[in-house]
Amino acid sequence: MTLARADLAQYVDHTLLKPEATPGDVEALATEAGELGVFSICVSPSMLPVSTPAGVAVATVCGFPSGKHHSSIKAAEAALSIAQGADEVDMVIDVAAAIEGRFDEVQDDIAAVRAAVPTDKVLKVIIESAALSDESIVGACRAAVAAGADFVKTSTGFHPAGGASEHAVRLMRETVGDALGVKASGGIRTADAALAMIEAGASRLGLSGTRAVLDGLDGSASASDGEEAGGY
C-alpha cells in the first residue's frame, strides 16, 4: 500500500484540543488545514463557530475527554455544536460502562447524541480502546453500530492508558465491517504509523502533528512498514 501526500491528507482530522488553545491558535489551525489539504479540523466546542477554507470540514468533540457526563448533557452539547456550524461530532462514551459490560447503557448514551445530531452530519464514537479489553472493544463497537453512529474512534488522546494501536484498529474494523468508519487517533506521529493505521482498517486519522506526518511520507514505502502508535 502506498499513498500520495494529497491522498493521505484526506484521511486527516487536523486536531487542536489543548485546553490552552486560543481563538488565534484555531484560526492558524484552519489556515494550515487549507495549506495541507486535510479533510477537516477538529476543535473544542467552545471554539465554534470557526471559518475554514473551502473543502475543509469542521469537527468538534462532545463529553470530552472523560465521557462522564449525563447523556442529556452530551446531547445538548452536540446539538449546540451543530447549530454553531460543526459538520462532525466526536463523542466520548462512559468508558466504565464498557469495561463493566453494560453495553445497553453505552448504546443508549450514543443513541441520545445521535438523536441530537442530524443524519446528514457525522457522529463518531470515542471508545478509549487502550483502556478496554478486546471483548469490551467489540461490545462498544457493536453498541455504536446499533445506535446509528457513523464512526468508531480509538481514543481521546488524553487517557493515561494510551492512544491508537494497530491491534485495536484492526479489531474495530473487523467488528463494524463496512457499516461504519474507523478513526485512529492518539499518538500517531509519523508517516509510517499513519500508513500502518490505514492498513489496519482506519478510514480517518486524528493528528495534531499533521505537517510532520505528511512531510515524513517520502521514504515511507508502504503501510506494512509502519510502527504501532501509542498515546500522546
Rank of each mutant, 00 (worst) to 15 (best):
T2V: 05
D7V: 05
D7Q: 09
D7K: 04
H14P: 00
L16M: 07
L17G: 09
A21C: 13
G24V: 07
G24S: 10
E27Q: 14
T31S: 15
G34H: 07
V38F: 11
P45N: 07
M47P: 00
V50T: 03
S51M: 12
A54K: 12
A54H: 05
G55E: 07
G63N: 06
P65Y: 11
G67W: 00
I73Q: 13
S81C: 10
I82H: 11
G85V: 08
M91E: 13
M91Q: 12
V92D: 06
I93E: 01
A98G: 05
E100D: 04
G101V: 11
F103Q: 00
D104E: 12
E105S: 14
E105A: 15
Q107S: 08
A111K: 13
A112E: 10
V117G: 10
T119E: 15
D120F: 02
V122T: 14
K124L: 07
A130C: 12
L132A: 01
E135K: 14
E135D: 14
S136W: 02
I137M: 05
I137S: 03
R142T: 08
A144S: 09
A147V: 06
V152K: 10
T154Y: 11
T156R: 13
T156W: 13
G157T: 01
F158L: 15
S165I: 06
A168N: 08
V169K: 10
R170Y: 10
R170T: 14
M172E: 10
L180G: 06
A184Q: 11
T190A: 13
A191W: 07
A193C: 12
I198M: 07
E199N: 01
A200K: 01
L205N: 04
G209Y: 04
T210S: 13
T210A: 15
L214C: 13
L214K: 14
S220T: 14
A221Q: 08
S222R: 11
D225G: 08
E227V: 15
